[in-house]
Design a protein around this nucleic acid. Structure first.
Lengths: 122, 122
DNA sequence: ATAGACTATGTGCAACAAGCATATAGTTGT
DNA sequence: ACAACTATATGCTTGTTGCACATAGTCTAT
């Protein structure tokens, strides 16, 4: 029962914490990149995206662009298949800042739950 | 933009972190109680369940029982409408312990994201 | 040349938690 | 009788995520 708990009834882990989105925003502040490269590099960082699947990655990227948080262009030339290269927007930078505040609240909430557990049991 | 960010596109906040379930398990280690009472008391604790709605509460309770983590009985007698009183099971106690481990991992993950943000920006 | 591996992006489907609205019904106070 | 309160529950919808699959260009070894 490693990493994440299964759902209430059956099947596979379900997270829906949107950490992929935040991690990608942080990643993109480091410069322009494309999906496949992110997939590879994110496996090395310890942001919990070691086993991020391609569906989630590409779908999240497309939605982020639809919301104006990132911008993309098809890379002209270069080796291999065409790449859609992404870049964070000003709007995206502001959005990321808000997300960090949300995560701070979320962490505090987890803290108080763990604390309550240790107070009452353990 | 207080508490939680809205979804990527539109509509209302979406969390799906299952903190309700864990909080309820912790709550139930303190003794037998029924749904409505939990709703009232959880508003006072600072576990982030201040505005937990009834649908989520009762549905979660029923699912938790279906999974054997809690057990219920209809309370005989007493004032007001009948109450379904809940009690945590042994299985539920073990499950809660596992959940705390999950939350510890989750917190560490949030930590490393916030840390990465501060390292690269801020 | 061609088969297979690798690079690269994407869609269809299903699972599932959570919110809003609504349903139901007993009890208490005026 | 009527409203307010206590108490539990379901229907519908939204939105994230995972798994499987689709598509297509490029590179390498035989």
């Amino acid at each position: 029962m490693i990493d994440e708990m299964g759902p209430l009834c059956c099947g596979k882990p379900h997270q829906a914490q949107r950490l992929t989105e935040v991690s990608l925003l942080i990643f993109m502040t480091q410069g322009i990149s494309h999906g496949y490269a992110m997939l590879e590099k994110l496996k090395q960082l310890n942001l919990g995206l070691e086993d991020l699947n391609t569906s989630t990655l590409y779908r999240t990227l497309r939605k982020m662009e639809a919301n104006g948080h990132i911008r993309s262009e098809w890379e002209s030339g270069g080796p291999g298949p065409k790449r859609r290269v992404y870049q964070i927007t000003e709007q995206g930078t502001a959005y990321l800042k808000q997300w960090i505040d949300v995560l701070t609240v979320r962490r505090a909430r987890i803290d108080s739950i763990i604390e309550a557990y240790n107070r009452l049991l353990s």
